[in-house]
Simulated scan of single mutants.
Amino acid sequence: MAGYIEKRLYEGETLRYQGQFHWLSHFRAWLALIVLGIVIFGIVFFIAEQIRLRTTEFAVTDRRVVLKKGLFSADVQEITLDSIEGSSIRQGVFGRIFGFGHLSINGRGETHIVFPVMANPATFRAHAERTKQSTPSEGPV
């Protein structure tokens, strides 16, 4: 099943890498359902978390880095690969052990994308950098 980003690629654009949530994100929702399932709050939290996890996408294409959030309305943030000026990863002790963390990609000027907690943020960043280096930059038109 094609996701939001895959359906909206530009002509000639290819998807290079699709980021994923870490399994602990899903575990947190299931734990809330099991522990708090007796209370309505647990069920509501479980449903809300599943909707968030299933409607958030982040990917690297051969032209840009994209983050899409939202169920009924789409909040799409993107930075073209040639506009990326830097990135940072935030991982705590458990994030380093279990392989999850926050990734922030900075573009020119005030442009930046802060991704939700994801599995292997260093791998996502490496794919963006590798794709940026392998994509021929366009000269003056």
Results as ranks from 00 to 15, higher is better:
F45Q: 07
E57T: 10
V76Q: 06
E85A: 01
P136G: 00
I43L: 14
F27W: 13
E110Q: 13
V39S: 13
F72V: 14
F27Y: 13
R108D: 04
L103P: 08
I97N: 01
G92N: 10
F21V: 07
V65A: 10
K132F: 07
I34T: 11
G109K: 04
D82P: 09
E110N: 14
L9E: 11
V66A: 04
E85S: 03
S25T: 09
E11I: 05
Q77M: 02
F21Q: 03
K69L: 07
F21E: 01
W23E: 01
F72L: 14
K7Y: 04
P121W: 12
F94Y: 11
L33S: 06
A29S: 14
A119F: 13
Q20T: 08
S137A: 00
G86C: 02
I38A: 09
T111H: 05
E129P: 03
M1I: 11
I97K: 02
A119W: 09
A122P: 05
R90T: 13
R54L: 01
R52K: 04
E13Y: 01
I40C: 08
E11N: 04
W23Y: 12
A122W: 09
K132D: 08
Q91D: 07
F72R: 03
I89F: 05
T111N: 06
R64W: 10
F115M: 12
V141P: 07
R130C: 09
T55A: 00
I43M: 10
N106F: 08
F72P: 08
H26G: 15
F21T: 04
F94R: 05
T56Q: 02
F72Y: 11
G19M: 06
V76N: 03
G139I: 04
A29N: 08
E138M: 11
S73R: 06
G92E: 02
I89Q: 08
R130I: 10
L71P: 08
I5R: 07
S88H: 05
S104D: 02
H26S: 12
G37V: 09
A29Y: 06
S104Q: 08
E6V: 06
G37C: 08
K132Y: 06
L24A: 03
N120I: 11
T55F: 05
S137P: 00
V117P: 06
F98T: 00
I40N: 03
T14E: 09
S83K: 14
A59E: 15
F94D: 01
R90P: 03
S73G: 12
E6L: 05
P136H: 00
R64S: 11
D75I: 06
V117L: 15
